[in-house]
Design a protein around this nucleic acid. Structure first.
Lengths: 233, 233
DNA sequence: GACCCCTGTAACAATTCGTAGGATTCGGGA
DNA sequence: TCCCGAATCCTACGAATTGTTACAGGGGTC
């Protein structure tokens, strides 16, 4: 839980791996290096890095395909390191799901700073690990689909309710428009499906013990959307 | 209503602002530009951008201080654009809380790609509701949409009322003309929409407990506009 | 097959907010 | 000071948005 973040390094040049892992460990990270994409992918079943530094132009695999797969399946931050400096390369790398794109030759200090910038944000971890979030005295468990009140009472929540709650927890204290919700929750636009949103929220509100006249956690902004007010922790 | 992400652009060169907003709007974003940091900061009480593009080296303020404040108080993604290409500049910018650092001259396509990369991930926690303002014994909370009287009584305020109040708080003791209000609050000019303003103000006045005969906080200047009289703090 | 829970739809209630119209106030000129 | 037109305020009403409840279909379990 409070371990140092783990950074995976995928680069076929041993010299670069050494340089990077030295700088990162100096900065307080744990590192693990790989020379080939196949090794790296095999290891991903065992370890769960917080960020991946990936060198494009690997000998044994198309790096961009790997980036794409990682982006959709892993919650780790993905940072490309590449010697290809063309704007088009950078754009496609980022569009495929990379979080950053660093050009060789790079400065280790900048790599560290960019990794830190990525890890500052809450990770959306996709692993099967414990998915518990605490907020305003409550505790949500997305594995067991339960909600525990500040007093300790536990009530089950449905999948639909959990989806809404997760969206709120990912964007605390930010306005979330209806359109955003429909998009995130997979509802096809328009129709009377946004009615379903209202109902989901209404049900979630009751389970959170909200006062209908004066909701404290889920606030509705007329004509704009919703705001989830809670300190995470 | 607020479907497309909103990108704020802070740069003192009009040419750059035009270039960026053209590229971003082409990519489906909404944009809003500012030439000065003070304008930008005032507007932040009113608008809620999803990402901020900030040019360092602004004439009227230290850009890095602004970045630092934004990073701790806003949930928006922060991207620095700068002509200073030294590694040390980049590192300090990122350490201060920026999410990315782009060097001039930049390619608009890459800026778009990097913004997209930022917005893919859940936004940073917006911090403990920095959206509180105190004035004349009152306290306005723009997260919870409440107004607390000097005696401690709390009344909810609607979105429309909050917009007006925010505008007043951004321009204390300064005359605000009707035209200005309509423009800021998004009302399409002319028509009988300025009647709506009257009503908004009237409702806000009642919630502030104003004496209709002798308003103390929101004063109307016949034929000119309104003035909000209050010490902020 | 009977039962139960989840989830969307529909119908109705409550809230928000702009519009309309008359009442009131303001400022200038007689 | 008094009067008049214009600007501003206030109240009520209605359209649009959102909340809530009841109900029906679907899928899973025993």
């Amino acid at each position: 839980m409070t371990d140092a973040p783990l950074i995976a390094i995928l680069d076929d040049e041993p010299e670069i791996r050494r340089l990077l892992s030295a700088a990162l460990e100096e900065a307080g990270f744990r590192t693990v290096g790989f020379a080939r994409a196949t090794e790296f992918e095999a290891a991903l079943r065992r370890i769960q890095p917080d960020a991946c530094l990936i060198d494009l132009g690997l000998p044994d695999r198309d790096g961009l395909a790997l980036v794409h797969r990682l982006a959709s399946e892993s919650g780790a931050a993905i940072i490309i390191i590449s010697g290809r400096a063309q704007v088009q390369d950078r754009v496609t790398g980022l569009e495929l799901g990379a979080d950053d794109y660093i050009i060789k030759p790079f400065e280790p200090a900048e790599v560290v700073a960019r990794i830190r910038a990525r890890l500052r944000r809450p990770q959306r971890d996709a692993g099967p690990g414990r998915q518990q979030v605490r907020f305003a005295g409550w505790s949500a468990d997305f594995d067991r689909y339960t909600l525990t009140s500040p007093e300790g009472a536990e009530t089950p929540i449905s999948h639909a309710e959990a989806e809404v709650l997760r969206l709120f927890l990912d964007n605390p204290r930010r306005l979330i428009s209806r359109a955003q919700m429909l998009e995130t929750l997979g509802g096809t636009a328009g129709e009377s499906f946004d009615r379903a949103m209202d109902v989901r929220i209404s049900r979630l509100r009751t389970k959170l013990g909200e006062d209908p006249k004066n909701p404290r956690l889920i606030k509705t902004i007329y004509g704009a959307g919703y705001i989830f007010l809670a300190e995470l922790g």
